[in-house]
Nucleic acid binder design. Structure first.
Lengths: 115, 115
DNA sequence: ACAGTATATTAAAATATACTAATATAAACT
DNA sequence: AGTTTATATTAGTATATTTTAATATACTGT
């Protein structure tokens, strides 16, 4: 039997899918699939508490799916290149959320992180 | 933005990944990826209780990942064709388990379902 | 009909997860 | 230095999941 893709222990794959098995985390991945976003933008779009978003991001990060970059007081999250092939496959299945990113720019209580 | 693959609501994708986010269920999927197996074979290979296996199989089934076929007193599980494209991608990431299927044939307390 | 085998279902316990509220840390601005 | 803003962490609670043990159902063979 020939397998072309990298193998991982079942424990690692289960860990990844467990992290992916949550609507909010899938939503976050969709949002940052095209552009990095800071936590306040993510919470603003999804409408979840800052603490909750932070904890979901921590799970995505510890599973190696996203990475963070600090700039001033903001921390920007983006997809981790190492997991990109997998994430791309997942994102293909998910509905487009670009309209949510558009709306972010025009909403009145828009976060100030990218002004 | 062009997307070639079928889209599903986030809730559905999360449901699928939640089901995939468990070592035992991934193991079961690997085992039945090449051939259908009955519950007693699965429990024998994985070394889990009959009840536990049955409940994991129920989750895989209700998520549409596997299907069942009854033959005499045995119920054989196999991959559900409808979810096959997704499952194939998942299986590519998992280690090969064919040696476990080989061992099943020679072990002393081998189940009698395929004699 | 009855006993045996295979599987499913139910109940209960243990563990894990998601969420909120509160607190801590870190940087920026005055 | 003190205040504000952004984020992380911690603690507590509610809910969900996994597992085991016990029971029920379905089929086979006698």
């Amino acid at each position: 039997m020939i397998r072309s893709e990298p193998q991982y222990p079942i424990s690692r794959i289960a860990e990844i899918f467990k992290v992916l098995g949550d609507q909010n985390r899938l939503h976050i991945l969709s949002l940052i699939s095209n552009q990095e976003l800071c936590v306040c933008e993510i919470t603003s779009i999804i409408g979840m508490s800052q603490s909750n978003a932070s904890q979901h991001l921590a799970k995505l990060r510890s599973a190696g799916l996203v990475k963070e970059r600090r700039s001033a007081q903001w921390i920007y999250y983006s997809l981790n290149q190492e997991a990109l092939p997998l994430i791309k496959e997942v994102l293909k299945m998910l509905p487009d959320v670009s309209h949510e990113l558009e709306r972010l720019k025009t909403q009145p209580d828009r976060p100030k992180c990218d002004t």
